[in-house]
Amino acid sequence: MTNNTLYWTIWFAASLILSPLLPGIINKVKAFFAGRKGPSVLQLYYDLFKLLRKESIVSTTSGGVIRLAPAIILGTLLTAALFLPYGAKYSPFTFTGDVIFFFYLLGTSRVAMIFGALDTGSSFEGMGASREAHFAALAEAAIFAVIGFLALTTGHSETGMLSDTGFSDIRHLTSTLLCAAAFFLVLLVENCRVPADDPDTHLELTMIHEAMVLDYAGPDLAGIFYAGALKLWLFISFFVMFLIPAGSWEFGLYSAVFGAGVLLTTVAVGCVESCMARYRFLKVPQMLAGALCIALLAVFCLTFFEGGLK
């Protein structure tokens, strides 16, 4: 086992263990803004343990897809986690073009979630599923514009390209900033955070993600919660890895910077969530169109003024 693989394994394991912390941190930030004490940062761990000890009950109207859905969601997200280049140049599992595979794994988990929601026969879950499909289709355009930007700056298409970007090349500063802004908007939408969807709401008419998971119970629900936290972790680490400048980092220093980056981004998500109201559904596609425009602007900036293709 080379050093790179060892470092990667350490961070991969850490990501599996630490990801349920992120929703806790966001909730703590929101509580701070509201002047409350708020639940413990570890709350999601407690919830997960509680749910794992319970039994799983499935609605009698469902045709069985709902039993498979949590396993598929969790499985695809765990597979996607294998491809991020934690603390190393490349993930050991990398292959050409795996960044597209990475985002389509996330897409597969979403399809499983939508089928699971439709399977219950509940009209609220159907509404949630329809909204999720709608916004995800629009978010994909912005994601691919960001991927296009990354591929243009680095000249290759593995997820390892994340370790080659960031503020290393001062010529790319403006476009990198723009691209980061676009990806942050996508991050908020994809993880059902506030301007797009409110994770705290319990009015079925306005829920997206929460509406889709109403019928899960026990270990299944634990799987869904964990998958949500893991997805947030994947997006935030993608964002942080993108911003960290390329270079030969000491493992310890890299870990510190990466950890601080993840923490800061999570706090930023919490701040956005505390300061903004949820957009009405009409405005979410506009927000995604904005993200697409910003990402395309970054590409223009790069191709016309910052040296263009490597």
């Binding site: 403006t174 723009l178 802004a181 904005g290 900036c301």
Partner: peptide, 24 residues
């Protein structure tokens, strides 16, 4: 190259897009 200017430029471009999308 001047880092601050580049950052200001990025914010300028963002502000234009925000102005186009802003409804209030």
């Amino acid at each position: 190259m001047n880092v601050q200017v580049e950052i200001l430029m990025a914010f300028f471009l963002l502000s234009c897009l925000m102005l186009a999308a802003c409804s209030r």
